[in-house]
């Protein structure tokens, strides 16, 4: 299937294998956090590691692999890296604020402040 894979030397292959293993394990842990953690405000931290380190490792591995496979510089994965690094913080902030506003609205509707899920501003010291 992948005809060029035999030509890859160990000096290129080993870093690619390490990066792929690290990246895939991190992706899996991030998704596991999404399922395992009990509270929305904790769950939002799970996908953050998927997006930063997991995606980063797999993208770098892909860059090294194709540069070796095609014997020329293939770095267009940098575009996805830059795009993901720019957009992931915006997405996280917007989802967080949506959750906070929804919880605030729900709390003011139910008149039951003080529950664990509700956004509470820390008191000033």
């Amino acid at each position: 299937m992948n005809l060029g894979i035999d030509t890859v030397t160990p000096w290129v292959g080993l870093p690619v294998v390490m990066l792929l293993l690290l990246g895939s394990i991190i992706v899996l842990i991030g998704a596991l956090g999404l399922v395992r953690l009990p509270n929305f405000y904790q769950r939002i931290h799970g996908p953050a590691i998927t997006i930063t380190l997991g995606a980063g490792c797999i993208l770098i591995a892909s860059m090294i692999f194709f540069t070796a496979l095609q014997s020329r510089l293939v770095i267009h994965e940098l575009l996805i890296t830059a795009f993901v690094l720019l957009t992931a913080p915006v997405v996280a902030m917007l989802i967080m604020r949506a959750a906070v506003y929804r919880d605030l609205r729900a709390a003011s509707r139910n008149h039951s402040p003080g529950s664990d899920e509700v956004y509470q501003f820390p008191r000033e010291k």
Partner: peptide, 16 residues
């Protein structure tokens, strides 16, 4: 905000 949000473990909510 980009730097803080990119770091796993911290999420920026808003400027009060």
């Amino acid at each position: 905000s980009c730097l803080i949000n990119s770091t796993p473990g911290t999420v920026w909510v808003e400027i009060l």
